[in-house]
Design a protein around this nucleic acid. Structure first.
Length: 363
DNA sequence: GTATGCTTTCGGC
DNA sequence: TTACGGCCGAAAGCATAC
């Protein structure tokens, strides 16, 4: 049977949630912002509604710049409340699960789903399931979303992005090749600037052009794995499964310092609560880590990291503190500029339950 | 040379 | 003219093993 895969994307999610909770925001620019606390308006725009986007506001833009773009426009700058969006996201994912065979959440506002069984492999039936999902989300939360339905994840993701906001794009197996044909290669998941540049150098700009390259020549340039993937994906072939629950692979905490500094003590003092917080989250989830990194964002906004991988997993707070401080100190000493933001990250996570004990490890 | 694992950087939201 | 978060996973870069 045809696989039938969908991708769901909640439209300008945080800002739309704010609009729902305060209807007086409708028709005005709405910006959900992260305020760093350094000055009254230092921080960036996380999400903007379409009215703000049409006035030139983008996510990641400094709040002060967004204010200029919206001069005299009655924009609303709202502090981001992550827990609030998290709770709504959870409810949406929960109800959407009822309409599909499998749901794979990716990020707070996106999910892949598999409706092969529910649609019996039929794309007409799949389209009505997708409309039903959209309607349930609209009825229960008053939120719009954009959905793509296609034969696989790669095409479904491109399809959900194709028409938005409030879009539904269905790409049948027969339509897949011509749907992909004119699109730039960057639309393909896994094609970053590096790969795009390499492709451009062999005269490949569109997915159609990519699809006509020999698999062997792509494998020669990009390696077996990426080369084969690119060839398949450009030809509308991709058999990555929808996986119900993805394990978290890393956790991090990052803060903006009160002022720029290179002093490790001053940085550590401010980062300390974030380290404790990261530790509680590890413990709460019964997870341990094997790799620890310190992160520094310098005054020119460039990023430096320093990592260390341990011989065995641990979730010991003292290790986190002392090793974190050590890595941070190394970063501070090796850095040419002062540090603006600092953070800590743990990776190579494992379940405490499955963790090799010291005794087993020594055997 | 290729595969693998670790470190660092990139990029999306 | 500049302005500037907090996460996450993936990509890229690099070292080492075979």
């Amino acid at each position: 049977m045809n696989r039938v895969i969908g991708h769901l994307d909640l439209d300008y999610f945080y800002a739309q949630v704010e609009e729902v909770q305060d209807p007086s925001l409708r028709g005005r620019p709405v910006l959900v912002c992260v305020f760093s606390g350094r000055t009254d308006e230092s921080g960036v725009v996380s999400t903007a509604n379409y009215i703000a986007r049409n006035l030139g506001v983008r996510s990641g833009m400094p709040i002060s710049l967004a204010k200029k773009r919206l001069a005299g426009k009655d924009g609303s700058f709202i502090r981001m409340q992550h827990e609030k969006y998290e709770a709504i996201s959870e409810q949406i994912m929960q109800t959407t699960r009822e309409s599909v065979d499998l749901l794979e959440q990716s990020g707070i506002d996106e999910a892949f789903f598999d409706i092969t069984q529910k649609s019996a492999g039929d794309f007409v039936s799949a389209a009505s399931i997708a409309r039903d999902i959209k309607e349930r989300i609209l009825n229960s939360q008053l939120l719009t979303c954009s959905v793509g339905v296609a034969p696989n994840k790669v095409v479904a993701k491109i399809a959900s992005d194709f028409t938005k906001p409030n879009g539904l794009t269905v790409v049948t197996p027969n339509q897949t090749k011509s749907f992909l044909e004119p699109l730039p290669v960057e639309k393909l998941y896994g094609v970053g600037p590096k790969t795009a540049k390499a492709l451009s150098e062999i005269g490949v700009e569109t997915i159609g052009q990519l699809s006509r390259q020999k698999s062997e020549s792509l494998e020669k340039i990009f390696g077996q794995k990426l080369g084969a993937y690119l060839h398949d994906a450009a030809n509308g072939i991709n058999d990555e499964p929808v996986v119900e629950s993805r394990e978290i692979t890393q956790l991090s905490r990052i803060i903006t310092l009160k002022r720029n500094t290179k002093n490790p003590e001053e940085i550590y003092a401010q980062l300390s609560p974030a380290i404790e917080d990261l530790h509680s989250r590890l413990v709460a989830n019964n997870r341990s880590f094997r790799t620890l990194s310190a992160i520094a964002i310098l005054t020119d906004l460039s990023t430096r990291t320093k990592s260390r991988t341990l011989e065995a997993h641990t979730n010991d707070l003292e290790t986190l503190r002392s090793l974190g401080k050590e890595l941070l100190t190394e970063l501070a000493f090796s850095s040419a500029r002062e540090i603006r933001r600092a953070g800590i990250r743990v990776a190579e996570l494992a379940d405490i339950a499955n963790q090799t004990s010291l005794a087993e490890y020594l055997e």
